[in-house]
């Protein structure tokens, strides 16, 4: 914890931090806006595949829907960058914030879930399925975990100003 506090103290001295926390007045609003656009890209473009594996849009093969993944990843990267900028701008608002911890935990769960999907062989099996084939149980579970964890990320993200020591 001490190391984190030291890093935060250093972060607060950086020009980037000063820019985010007021010197560039449009910096924070711009990042908030991009953070919400990234959110929509992630929820929508990953969501179509999650819902497909839960039985939606059966006429599309899962393989064909995979082209949406890069757009969801782009949304995630956009949010990773803007999220990092928020943290750099005001580290003290996040460090002892329970909501922030929970948000990170659910991002972690979503990440492990994706790794399991790709490396655990689930993706390989659903990729070979035709439009009307039955979906294996583990794929359905991966989808459910994905949807729930990303919605929990939104929940805890939105709770940042209301829970814990936040602004």
């Amino acid at each position: 914890m001490n190391t984190i506090l030291q890093i935060n103290k250093w972060l607060e001295t950086t020009a980037l931090s000063h820019a985010m926390s007021g010197r560039v007045p449009w910096g924070w609003p711009l990042c908030e806006t991009l953070h919400f656009i990234g959110l929509a890209m992630l929820i929508g473009c990953i969501g179509v595949i999650d819902l497909r594996m839960l039985g939606f849009a059966r006429h599309a093969s899962i393989h064909s829907l995979h082209k949406f993944v890069p757009w969801g990843v782009a949304g995630f990267i956009l949010n990773l960058i803007t999220g990092a900028l928020f943290y750099i701008g005001a580290p003290s608002q996040y460090v002892n914030n329970f909501a922030f911890l929970m948000k990170l935990i659910f991002i972690g769960i979503a990440g492990v879930n994706i790794l399991y999907f790709y490396l655990g062989g689930v993706m390989k099996r659903v990729d070979a399925l035709g439009p009307e084939d039955a979906i294996p149980m583990d794929a359905k579970l991966v989808s459910l975990v994905s949807i729930v964890s990303w919605f929990m990320v939104m929940y805890w993200g939105r709770m940042l100003p209301f829970v814990g020591n936040a602004f």
């Binding site: 929509a40 599309a60 393989h63």
Partner: peptide, 30 residues
């Protein structure tokens, strides 16, 4: 915020399909 994700997010996916992303996905399936 969640409603935004559902409305704007899934709408974006359909729009991307109409713009030529994921051409093998039948439009009607969406």
């Amino acid at each position: 915020t969640m409603g935004l994700g559902m409305l704007v997010g899934f709408n974006a996916a359909v729009n991307l399909r109409l713009l030529g992303i994921a051409p093998e996905v039948p439009i009607a399936s969406m």
